Amino acid sequence: MPTQKIVAPPAKAAMFLVLTVNEGAEAQVADVLTGVSDLTKAVSFRVPTSNLLCVVGIGHDAWGRLFDAPLPRDLHPFREFHGEVHSAPATPGDILIHLRAGTQDVCFELAKQLMSRLRPYTRVQDEVHGFKFFEERDLLGFVDGTANPEDEDAQSAAVVGDQDPSYRGGSYVLVQKYLHQMDEWEALSTGEQERVIGRSKLEDIEMSDEQKPANSHVALNDLDDVDGHAREIMRDNMPFGEVGSAEFGTYFIGYAADPAVTETMLENMFIGNPPGTYDRILDFSTAVTGGLFFAPPRSFLDDPTTVPAQDTSSGADAPDDDAVSASPAPAAPADGSLGIGSLKRP
């Protein structure tokens, strides 16, 4: 089954668009989505070496509005986390468009073409232009992505398999936009920054367990295996910024076969493991958005009828959203986090 390209090498440029669908425009939006693959090919053909990729994800509340197909097994509204000091807010989002390439021009062109078709029927809630920054580093100066799984491990971590046969080849995508308090961060010594992250800054070497603080970013995002299976995700984070407004940040995007893995990382960061030991990186970054989406297989995106329509006659219940704290999307709070998963790039 063909799939949207989930596992890919690090890109040099990216764009992230989060949209909401206007009420009554669901049929038009669903029709546009069936043409995304062809549109991506058309733009990519103009610059064959660009390695242009496009992933489209659909949020929980929009799925049933757009498709007459069962809800992916683990798709639910973004789960908020509120710790004693920092919070991960949920914000509006029905559709995620993740564009990545070797250059920003092709990302921009594809985004322009997509929005010319979607603009009458949607509203842009967030738009971020990401760029590669010195040796795969984020704007905090640390390498972002060195511990991502590779090859078969990456496929297993990021892509749905037999656990949901109807959507085999899809992926759950969790995104958050973080703004850095750069003045406060840069006031720290290099040694103190390294203790916040849990890695050396120049060499990108992880500290030993004896050296690594319990509230360091790496310590709280390195999950123990379950039944011999590693709990990992694929990150494709990107730095972004505007020098005029002095707004600098990291756009976190994590792909997972099971969104609970990413959510466990966020719980460790915001609540702490043990509770109260929150990720110290949150003292220097604020989460301003949060959304969970399902990127279906490309075959489904091209033709949603490949998955049989939901059978409502059997009385089958939809997943219990209450079990995952399905809160409405509030405005972003003043405090937040840098849920960069592991500050690691694929």
Rank of each mutant, 00 (worst) to 15 (best):
V32H: 09
V32Q: 12
L33Y: 00
L33W: 02
L33V: 03
L33P: 00
L33S: 00
T34H: 07
T34N: 09
T34A: 05
T34L: 07
G35D: 14
G35S: 14
G35W: 02
G35P: 05
G35L: 07
G35F: 05
S37Y: 13
S37Q: 12
D38Y: 06
L39D: 10
L39I: 09
T40Q: 14
K41R: 15
K41Q: 15
K41H: 13
K41C: 12
K41V: 09
K41F: 08
K41D: 15
A42Y: 08
A42V: 07
V43S: 09
V43Q: 11
V43L: 15
S44H: 15
S44L: 13
S44C: 10
S44K: 14
S44Y: 14
F45W: 11
F45D: 11
F45V: 11
R46C: 11
R46K: 15
V47M: 14
V47G: 09
V47L: 12
V47R: 11
P48N: 15
P48G: 12
P48E: 14
P48I: 14
P48Q: 14
P48C: 13
P48S: 12
T49C: 08
T49H: 11
S50W: 08
S50K: 10
S50G: 09
S50L: 06
S50R: 09
S50H: 08
N51H: 14
N51W: 10
N51I: 08
L52I: 11
L52F: 09
L52E: 11
L53Q: 13
L53R: 13
C54D: 10
V55C: 10
V55E: 12
V56D: 03
V56M: 06
G57W: 04
G57F: 05
G57P: 05
I58K: 06
I58W: 01
I58E: 00
I58F: 01
I58A: 04
G59L: 05
H60P: 01
H60Q: 08
H60Y: 09
H60N: 08
H60V: 00
D61S: 11
D61G: 03
D61A: 11
D61C: 00
D61Q: 10
D61P: 00
A62P: 00
W63H: 04
W63I: 07
W63C: 02
W63N: 01
W63M: 01
W63P: 02
G64K: 07
G64M: 03
G64P: 02
G64T: 04
G64R: 07
G64F: 01
G64H: 08
R65Y: 02
R65H: 04
R65C: 03
L66C: 06
L66A: 04
L66V: 05
L66N: 05
L66W: 06
L66R: 07
L66D: 02
L66H: 08
L66Y: 05
F67V: 01
D68H: 06
D68Y: 00
D68Q: 06
D68N: 05
D68A: 08
A69E: 03
P70S: 03
P70G: 04
P70F: 06
P70Q: 00
P70D: 04
